[in-house]
Design a protein around this nucleic acid. Structure first.
Lengths: 137, 137
DNA sequence: TTCTTTGCAAATTCTTTGCACCGAA
DNA sequence: TTCGGTGCAAAGAATTTGCAAAGAA
């Protein structure tokens, strides 16, 4: 248990929120400051967290995104094209249907990943405001 | 409409099957042969196909995978960890449930992507055989 | 001819690795 | 003291881009 791992554990599990490597490093102390962690160590440690079952990793726009896994209930996401935000939702019925489908195909589920792409209410509203502003120019 | 685009169109839409860039290039004439297409042109053209709505792109293990979009019904996939195979399935009920959930959250769907990870029947059987072989060594 | 596309090489982006040094136990 | 962990720089993998030459219309 090193200083670097303490810092990473703390930042990663402080809040329940998904993040990518750049966002995480952004929040950490900069180079030279106390508690700084180098980029390779961040990557190495996140990989260990994933292996250990603490985090889950998935890809969005070609980069890795991490979210809490250990002790956190399964869920899925909306991805809003307008705001770039990932919105979590929980739905029991969906999980059951996925299990039923897998059974039909004799497929043993390890996990699943569903992302619904489109526009959230907030995204649509923000986009409407932006358009108006553009119209004025 | 260039020679290269003709070659790519032909190879991509000849069969209904998902593929990644390396698999596609593998099938094309090699450098020096007639009908060869350079790697950058493959990337550029696939991007155009995606923009044009002919192909859909998604990420698997950090690389892009393409599948037919235009004129092909929506579907989802199993991804078998044992065999590395992507298996397509169609399920009306799932689409309806996803639409219902999106409505509940006031989210306007553009598309969705579901991948169920685990082991297919074939994958499990292949894996059993492999294990046996290993046991014999 | 004119404008677009191609190929090559080089650049980018994200992530991993080799290796000497440091630090936890 | 002893290993595993860290940081740096460099290597990799996948994809994109600048630019001059080639080609379609």
């Amino acid at each position: 248990m090193t200083e670097q791992r303490k810092v990473l554990l703390q930042h990663v599990f402080e809040r329940h929120q998904h993040f990518d490597v750049d966002e995480l490093i952004e929040q950490l102390p900069k180079r030279g400051e106390a508690g700084h962690v180098s980029r390779p160590t961040v990557y190495r440690t996140l990989n260990e967290f994933v292996e250990a079952g603490l985090l889950r990793r998935f890809e969005l726009d070609g980069r890795s995104v991490y979210e809490h896994d250990y002790g956190y209930p399964a869920h899925d996401h909306f991805y809003c094209d307008k705001s770039g935000k990932l919105i979590e939702f929980h739905n029991r019925e969906l999980v059951e249907l996925i299990e039923k489908i897998a059974q039909q195909y004799d497929f043993q589920i390890a996990s699943h990943r569903l992302i619904i792409y489109g526009a959230s209410k907030e995204g649509r509203e923000a986009s409407r405001r932006t358009k108006r502003r553009q119209d004025m120019i």
